[in-house]
Every structure is written in C-alpha cells, then in structure tokens.
Amino acid sequence: MSEAAVKTVRKPRPKYLNLQALIFEIRLPLPGWISILHRISGALLFVALVWLLWMLDVSLSSEAAFNKIKHYAGLWPVKLSLLVLVWAYAHHFCAGIRYLFLDLDKGLDLETARLTSWIVLGASLALTAFLGWKLW
C-alpha cells in the first residue's frame, strides 16, 4: 500500500455534545424553547406540589395557622419561589393551550408557530406579573 493511500481524507469526527455546546453553540429555535420550558416547568411543578399541598394543608387547619402561612408567603425567598411557580404554571398553561391547537393541526406553519411562541412567552410573563401584583 502506498503512502498516499494511507493518508486518506479523514472524516470529520462527530461533535461531542458537552454542556457548553448545548447552551452556546446549538441555537434552539423559539418554538424549541417553548417546548423545553414546557417540560422544565412541568417537572418543577410536579416536584413543588408537595410544598404547595403542605401550605394548603396548614392554611386550612386554623386561623392562627392561616395567618402564619400568610406571613410565611410574604418572606422574600418564599415570595420569589412562589413567583417562579406562578410563572411555571402560567407558562405550562399557555404553552399547553398552544399544543392543543397544534394537535388540531392549527398554527403549524412556521410564521404562525413563531408568532404563537412569542405570544406564549409574553402572555405567561404578563400573567405572572399580574398575579404577583394581585397576590401581594
């Protein structure tokens, strides 16, 4: 075998997907962000439900306990966590409605899909701001 035959053109190696590549190099399109946020918010809500049920349980047990929870919900780390959960619920809600329409073959073309993605993003943030303002 000649020297030239050994030096064949090397195929480019497949890219190893490290975290840096996933976050900074692969550009997820907007509907993709809606999708992964829908998944993340769903998982978050499932895990946080134990905390929310605990608060519901305590708040319904007596007047003193209700006032304790009210005070507890006013502490800033608690307030911040609750706001994150309100956002998670609002996003999951809005994106979920978008998916129901997609299941009915409505809004499948690229332009509409992008537009409804922006609407989902904006509406869930607006709902979070509104409910946050109403609650405190």
Partner: peptide
C-alpha cells in the same frame, strides 16, 4: 408512589 400520596393527602385536606 408520590402521585398516590399527593392524591391521598388532597382527600385528607379536603375532607378533614
């Protein structure tokens, strides 16, 4: 098991 516990707890909270 977590889901079953959530449902059980909810019943307990609602009909205590």
């Amino acid at each position: 098991l977590t889901i079953a516990a959530y449902v059980g707890w909810t019943i307990q909270i609602l009909w205590r």
